[in-house]
């Protein structure tokens, strides 16, 4: 519970202190990227805090390199 509050606090701080000035100064591209990263970041952080397991993208590695792995791995 307190951890979620911490993440919420960080998000709000990020929003107010960094995002607003970016918008005001007119750096729309910066602000958009910031927003996207923030959203994804908050989502992942909340998943972490709540111990909610997402499928790992690293499993792709095993799939992509499958033919080579046969000769390589112990």
């Amino acid at each position: 519970m307190s951890a979620t509050l911490l993440i919420a606090f960080l998000t709000v701080t990020a929003f107010v202190w960094e995002l607003m000035p970016l918008f005001k100064k007119g750096f729309i591209k910066d602000a958009m990227l910031y927003l996207v990263l923030l959203m994804v970041g908050v989502y992942l952080s909340v998943c972490t805090i709540l111990l909610f397991d997402l499928p790992s993208p690293m499993a792709l590695l095993n799939i992509i390199f499958k033919p080579l792995l046969k000769g390589f791995a112990p």
């Binding site: 960080l10 998000t11 970041g41 989502y43 992942l44 998943c47 997402l54």
Partner: peptide, 24 residues
């Protein structure tokens, strides 16, 4: 973009979450 410093806070949340997601 103009300056990389502004991105550090959302990247922190992102990396924190991703380092957990990366494997169970």
């Amino acid at each position: 973009l103009r300056d990389y410093r502004v991105l550090t806070l959302p990247i922190f949340l992102f990396i924190f979450g991703y380092s957990y997601v990366i494997s169970t």
